[in-house]
Design a protein around this nucleic acid. Structure first.
Lengths: 188, 188
DNA sequence: TCAATAACTAAGCATGTGCTTAGTTTAAAT
DNA sequence: ATTTAAACTAAGCACATGCTTAGTTATTGA
């Protein structure tokens, strides 16, 4: 016995996510969200509670998009370590939007909020990072010669490398990024 | 025939720099700068023009501090590639402030402002990065077996790795960072 | 001694921030 | 057709933002 929403929450959150991805959390204002999402502030607060609520949903949306366009491919691959290397190259394409590189939303968020990030945001971040790392471990395990200890260390190494790629992609050119990726996988 | 300033610009800029380092550019307000620098807004604007002016001077101050506490040691060292590895470890200590890791101010800035960073800020950043990279090249050249091409690629690799370390130090523990550094220098 | 000049204080400006609320419109249940 | 409840509009709240300015204080050369 009531009116219907004139928007789909999933659709407007995707637009919010793109905005946060381009601008970061603090620099994205609710007025900007209003315009980008195409709905009034009232509707934003009715659907998502507050700005942080929009951001949390945006992180979930990012995870979904990354899974679809990036992570599923890694998961399916049977190419061992080469699959991870391909993931690095795919990530650069994934984070690029018409010549400008937005980096990884998760990495951007850690870098921006650091210790100040609240619990909800932090747990979204940690769960995402854990998923990726577990996949890296799975692919590394395809080489039976590697010990568990070696795999653990190499997975840590690759996770930090991936963060480096995210930041570096914002300021370095493709050649430098290629040099990085190639060298990264030289002794893995 | 006029009054003297009651503060030294270099001293108050160091405090501003610490604040920007901890909080980032956008999140640091002029009111916060006022308190931290211990001078009135009028004095801030009289000495540095605007908020961006304070930030530019802060970047220069950061470069000075990094040179003194970090880069000079690398420059002096005759230990070849090991000197660079030591630099990585030294950087973590340098960027740590009582258990929280602030990362590298330069990297933080690139990550926060990205393409939006204006010309003055960007040129400070590029000049800093170029200095460090040139030093890496110099140390890599101490091994006469390496070709110019190899050195170029390895320098690119190390620069991106260093950025990764900066971001990763904010969320990963010391063990993961150690794994990263050790693996990074395994194939150099 | 005193006029000149720069450094200070603190109040204030316009605009932006996250969020709320009074009032209206819409659609379904009766 | 009428009631009811949710979704909408748009105005507005209190406070934060970067920056300015009117008015005061201190230091200096004449």
């Amino acid at each position: 016995m009531a009116r219907k929403k004139e928007y789909l929450e999933d659709e407007v959150i995707e637009k919010a996510m793109e905005l946060f991805w381009r601008n970061g959390y603090e620099t994205t204002s609710v007025r900007m969200l209003e315009k980008e999402m195409g709905i009034n502030q009232f509707s934003i607060y009715a659907s998502f509670g507050n700005k942080k609520g929009v951001f949390i949903k945006s992180l979930a949306c990012y995870k979904g998009k990354a899974k679809l366009e990036l992570i599923n491919k890694l998961q399916k691959s049977t190419d061992g370590v080469n699959a991870i290397k391909q993931y690095f190259y795919d990530f650069i394409k994934f984070s690029k939007e018409s010549s400008i590189n937005k980096g990884c939303l998760i990495t951007n968020t850690v870098n921006e909020l650091g210790e100040k990030a609240d619990q909800e945001i932090m747990s979204e971040i940690v769960s995402f990072a854990t998923n990726v790392k577990d996949l890296f471990i799975e692919k590394l395990e395809s080489n039976p010669k590697k010990t568990t200890e070696t795999i653990r260390k190499q997975a840590n190494y690759l996770m930090v490398s991936l963060q480096g790629l995210s930041v570096a992609s914002k300021m370095f050119d493709q050649e430098q990024l290629d040099d990085f990726i190639e060298n990264t996988f030289k002794n893995i």
